[in-house]
Simulated scan of single mutants.
Amino acid sequence: MTLGRYDYERRYRRRVWTGVAKFGALAGVVLGVGLFAYQMGIEQLKGRDVTLREEIATLSRQKAEFELLASQMQQAARTAESRTAELEGRIQREVPTGDLARLSQLVAERLKSGLTAERLSFIIGQAQMQRNCQPAENKRFVLATPLLKSGARGTTFANGAVTVSGDGQSAHNTQGDPESWYDPGQPVTIKITAIGGKTVTASGTLPLHQSLVVDSTEYRFTFAPGQRSFVDVAADRCAYP
């Protein structure tokens, strides 16, 4: 009986120690796997840290480059704005406007037509505020229309030196039929002719203004609607220039 109990206890202890050994081996394996995984995790974190640091350095360089580019662009924009303001001021100072623009265009046209700069300079230099003019002549003449073309249609000034004539559109009665007299609300054409054939025209709705220079005299005409069929004319004759 004693021997059987001893064998039982010994087998029991052996099983216990075997279990402990298996548990220890299993624990060692688990611990080893854990340590290996931990080490791998540490290495991965180190690698990720290096990668992140490199990305941060790259982004920092790019940020510095962008900031420098933005600064250069802002400087360029300020320079362009300053240049634009300078050009606008120069344009306002140097490009003629209003009456000066019209005079500049007229001078350009006269130069293009063949008139010399010396002649233009002389004429402009001779112009004065006070002009030497004779009293105005006031006359009237019948304006020709499609239904009124026969006979003399016009008048003369300066003892026949200048002839004025013209034509217009027929007026219409209440039935819409054309009349022989002109319609003052429609455009007309006035022709001014000097002895020798020099001619200028004025076209548009009355009143109209036109000038004609003959030798050393300037004739300035104002045309306005008169009584039926008539155009009233006021003519100034002044020394030129």
Rank of each mutant, 00 (worst) to 15 (best):
A202I: 13
V200A: 01
S170T: 15
A117Q: 13
L206V: 10
A117E: 09
A108N: 11
T193N: 08
L143I: 13
G196W: 02
Y182L: 02
L115C: 08
N173D: 15
V162D: 02
P187G: 05
E137P: 01
L120A: 04
S104F: 06
A117G: 06
S113Y: 09
G151Q: 01
V162T: 10
G196M: 06
Y182N: 02
T145L: 07
A194D: 09
A161M: 15
D99W: 08
E109Y: 08
H209K: 15
T145Q: 07
R131L: 13
I190W: 00
Q186E: 13
S121T: 15
S150E: 15
G151R: 05
N173L: 07
S216N: 11
G168M: 07
L212R: 15
T193A: 08
R220S: 07
V188N: 07
L120N: 04
G125L: 13
G185K: 15
T145A: 06
Q210L: 05
S180I: 14
V107W: 00
R131P: 04
A194V: 11
L212F: 12
S203H: 03
F141K: 09
N159S: 15
Q186L: 14
Q105I: 06
G114P: 09
D167F: 14
S180W: 10
A158I: 04
R153A: 05
R220F: 01
N132A: 11
L206E: 08
Y219A: 01
L103F: 11
T205Q: 09
P207T: 11
D167K: 13
E137Y: 01
S121M: 09
S165D: 13
S170E: 07
W181Y: 10
G176Q: 09
G168T: 11
F157Q: 06
G154E: 09
Q210D: 02
G154W: 10
Q175S: 14
L100R: 12
T156V: 11
A136M: 10
C133I: 11
A108M: 10
